[in-house]
Write a protein that binds this DNA or RNA. Structure first.
Length: 368
DNA sequence: CTCCAGGATAACC
DNA sequence: GGTTATCATGGA
């Protein structure tokens, strides 16, 4: 078993902005967008000896996300600014969530990767560690598939963002100061699947959150797939392919607006045709370009675009400024009878540059 | 009964 | 370019 590198050792070179020229990852890594000059090494020790640093994007070599592989279990090293309890509270807040569940301080879900669907239990027995255990007979067969699971969990919990600058920023910000005090260690829990993120955004437009979860459940149970594992049923969000072939009639039973049904089918068709992909959005240049690409899609306005960029693409500047929940959170914190105007929010958020997404996520937590 | 929910669109002026 | 009715439903 490979020894896990502790967090502090790898901290410095990554977050100081210092340019690193010699990058390594492992032969089995499937990451498609490595930095240039990335060399593959058989072992971490050899790479380090040669003066190489682990690839920041690579699932198996990240400093913080380093993992050990014990066949039935993966262990991720997480940053200091990670509170399993705080993230658990967020994940547990919605009883009607259908894509995972929480029980005894553990999280359970199926993670679809290519043809396989491993079911995992995620727990944290000790600080700075996250344990991923495969349930039943769902353990992935090959090493890179396990690496994909590790990558998925790291992405889901946003383990690769260094929150220290955000916490520094918050010290001198009236709103954020209270937010980070209350929710220290909370991460921007993501929606890694782009189609799911867009659908969730569209479904959530202009209705209260409990009803949005009900609609999502109906959609998933009608058109998604499920697998059984250890006596539990695990649902997987429908693929674009599943939805693209549907008609308005098929979606009527869900009881959402006809327009939303059109939007969902339209987005599914665009994705089946390859006209929207996560890679395109991630690599299109900057956040504003990605926002423009999304807003052009029928059914996606500024709010949904920023929501998707925030929860799926994890762009730090994504900012759903029209969000009613954000308005209510600010109103609550300021103790004012009226919700803030857009101008007031712009003023309050002027110093949040590159942390708008995290600020929003933290402020939302005051609502529940 | 009315109003508001983690909005977007088409059809107006 | 700004404003407004419309959409489905549930909860306060």
């Amino acid at each position: 078993m490979e020894k896990t590198t502790s967090y502090p050792k790898w901290d410095a070179p990554y977050f100081t902005g210092k340019k690193i020229e010699k990058i390594y990852c492992f032969p089995w890594c499937m990451e498609k967008f490595h930095p240039e000059n990335t060399i593959r090494f058989q072992s971490r020790a050899n790479a380090e000896q040669a003066g190489y640093r682990p690839c920041k994007k690579c699932c198996s070599t990240l400093p913080i996300g380093a993992w050990t592989d014990k066949q039935s279990e993966l262990t991720l090293v997480v940053p200091k600014e990670f509170s399993f309890n705080e993230n658990m509270k967020y994940l547990s807040k919605e009883p009607n969530e259908c894509l995972f569940y929480c029980k005894n301080q553990r999280i359970y879900r199926a993670i679809p990767i290519k043809e396989e669907t491993p079911v995992v239990e995620i727990r944290s027995d000790q600080d700075n560690m996250l344990h991923i255990r495969f349930l039943g007979t769902t353990m992935p067969s090959c090493k890179w598939m396990r690496a994909e699971v590790a990558r998925y969990v790291r992405d889901w919990f946003d383990l690769d963002t260094d929150l220290l600058p955000f916490y520094d920023l918050a010290k001198s910000d009236a709103l954020l100061q209270r937010a980070v005090t209350h929710f220290t260690g909370l991460r921007n829990i993501g929606i890694p699947d782009l189609f799911e993120a867009i659908c969730w955004g569209i479904i959530g437009q202009q209705i209260n959150l409990p009803f949005a979860y009900t609609l999502k459940r109906r959609l998933v149970e009608a058109f998604g797939r499920s697998i059984e594992c250890d006596g539990e049923t695990y649902w997987i969000f429908p693929s674009p392919h599943d939805i693209a072939a549907l008609t308005m009639e098929d979606l009527k039973g869900l009881q959402m607006t006809g327009k939303k049904c059109e939007y969902l089918i339209g987005v599914a068709q665009l994705m089946v045709e390859g006209k929207i992909t996560k890679e395109q959005l991630a690599n299109c240049g900057d956040y504003k370009k990605a926002e423009n690409m999304l807003v052009k899609i029928r059914g996606i306005g500024p709010w949904t675009a920023n929501y998707v960029l925030m929860r799926c693409l994890r762009m730090p500047s994504a900012f759903p400024i029209d969000d009613v929940g954000l308005h209510n959170a600010i109103k609550y914190l300021q103790g004012t009878p009226q919700k803030p105007t857009k101008a007031e929010i712009l003023k309050l958020s002027a110093t949040w540059t590159n942390w708008e997404a995290y600020a929003t996520f933290y402020l939302w937590r005051f609502l529940y």
